[in-house]
């Protein structure tokens, strides 16, 4: 096969890390280097001792290994900030807290390659990141109750988090859309038989007592309404079927 099937559905986590490694990061040079180095995607500037430069993370990884630079952690990668965010995440049940783009990927890279430059204890940080990741995943999984055939918002999630759910979400939503389509077709035929206005797509909504409907309506309005975690409030006990599917979906 030219391209394995598992790669056709989503990205591997290594590929997501690859993308994150292209992001720029601030580094402090320990040595001076006299000339620039011209590269394909960027260039490595002249280094003066103790100056700050912005370079891609992958480049920083190489230079850090050679002890040429120090990589100070970004302002969000410390105990205080992450503990606060965790609290926020616990108290606010309806939305994800705002974290930097790629926070999960970047913190992973940091704990792997720039451990020596961390200010806080790495074990504490690792635990906080893990906690944060888990509570967000729980929220995301609860939010899956809200899956519909139209549209969903995933604001404030990192690519790594989205990527894990990509095949599942797009498959389930795709199937829901198929159901919807066949429902509409059926309805269209019935309407036609009754000599009613066949163009009225809403006709079936009036007598549709499926509790799915509420979810659908709340999630089509606009930005705020379509946020996934919103579903936490109106998780319905009757909606067991979806819950089962969600639970089966092991992470």
């Amino acid at each position: 096969m030219t391209f394995p099937k598992e790669l056709q559905e989503t990205f591997t986590s290594a590929e997501i890390v690859y993308l994150a490694e292209n992001e720029l990061i601030e580094v402090i040079s320990n040595v001076s280097m006299n000339d620039k180095l011209s590269l394909i995607s960027t260039e490595l500037p002249k280094f003066r001792v103790m100056s700050t430069y912005k370079i891609p993370i992958w480049l920083a990884i190489i230079l850090r290994k050679q002890n040429k630079i120090t990589v100070p952690p970004p302002e969000w990668l410390n105990e205080n900030y992450l503990a606060n965010k965790y609290q926020e995440e616990v108290t606010n049940q309806t939305a994800f807290t705002q974290l930097p783009n790629n926070w999960l990927e970047v913190s992973k890279i940091f704990l792997k390659h720039f451990v020596q430059d961390l200010i806080d204890n790495e074990d504490v940080l690792l635990k906080l990141i893990q906690d944060l990741k888990e509570i967000r995943l729980v929220k995301l999984r609860k939010g899956l109750n809200n899956l519909n055939e139209i549209n969903l918002g995933f604001n404030d999630l990192s690519l790594m988090e989205i990527n894990e759910f990509r095949p599942f979400i797009s498959r389930v939503m795709g199937n829901l859309a198929k159901f919807q389509k066949s429902l509409e077709n059926e309805e269209g035929v019935e309407n036609y038989d009754d000599a009613e206005d066949p163009g009225d797509d809403n006709a079936y909504d009036d007598d549709d007592d499926d509790d799915d409907l509420d979810n659908r309506n709340t999630s089509t309005g606009g930005r705020k309404d379509s946020t996934m975690a919103e579903a936490n409030d109106d998780i319905d006990d009757e909606d067991m079927e979806m819950e089962d599917i969600v639970n089966e979906f092991e992470l």
Partner: peptide
Amino acid sequence: FIKVVTGDAKPVRFNDHEIVLEKDDIHTI
């Protein structure tokens, strides 16, 4: 999965639905 990158993306309209696309929003559609 899409991400909105400009501030003036036109909303998506289909059937009876309208989806507003604000900058930095992430949607499945």
